[in-house]
Amino acid sequence: MSRADLDPAQEGTGGTAQESAGRTARTTQESTEQRIPLARRGSLLLNELRTTLRRWRTLALLGVLAAVPVLVGIAVRIETGDGGSAGGGTGEGPAFISQITNNGLFLVFTALAATLPFFLPMAVGVIAGDAIAGEAGAGTLRYLLVAPAGRTRLLLTKYATTMAFCLLATLVVAVSALTVGALLFPLGELTTISGTRISFTEGLGRALLIALVVAASLTGVAALGLFVSTLTNSGIAAMATTVGLLITVQILDQIPQLDAIHPYLFSHHWLSFADLMREPVYWDDLVKNLGLQALYAAVFGSAAWARFTTKDITT
């Protein structure tokens, strides 16, 4: 857990009464906290990861994500059974789709490009939206807090778990795509967007790097979902709101008249991960994307913290 979790002010829920008593409590509380070994603080995170993976909902989401590359792979295979190339090589369909028949590794890039605009962030929105609101709705939140989990610690645990899910979901898509690509198409050296040839091993390395960047691209949605999750006691409402915001942002990003706000939409630079397939790598948009995600994480993470640490838990 991070330094912030040791912040004794975390339970200082804006109370004005008994300032001096509060100050004494802070010091004693801090000393209590510092005696706790790190291993014990991590118990909740491990348990949270395990609990999240044991929900059928999580498994269903991962199943859907794993199915996408299978569908794309089979579709391309059927479409190109006569020896032609998918998308007619004119750039129709998701990025890299026309290259899949030459090299199965491109199915990884295609699958990530196909799932990043909607499937991946939707799955993250479901997990993040449910994080606090779902516990509140089920009443388990009050028992976690009187355990006492600590509000800041619980929120950080939930965010860390959501981030772990982002990574896992992305890897599920990538691994599924790599497997299907290897089964249905040839593997080998590949050509970058810039036209240079790189070895299959380096291609695999790029694929892993791209998966990490795609996972990091979901940080903003995760923070937004977590903030929404602190606003309501209904997990379903929080999930629906988060997914609704995702769709809204995706639509706004398509309207040319609104290009003034486009650079601030969390999805605007998402497809910049393709720049990792250039030689040399073109970093500008990648850095903009990661910076924007960090900004969203900071803004909505703080908002979620401010809301959750002062909220009356009445469920």
Partner: peptide, 12 residues
Amino acid sequence: RPMPRATLAVLP
């Protein structure tokens, strides 16, 4: 101990 300030010390 005062609540809710001392929750982490009291509630265990």
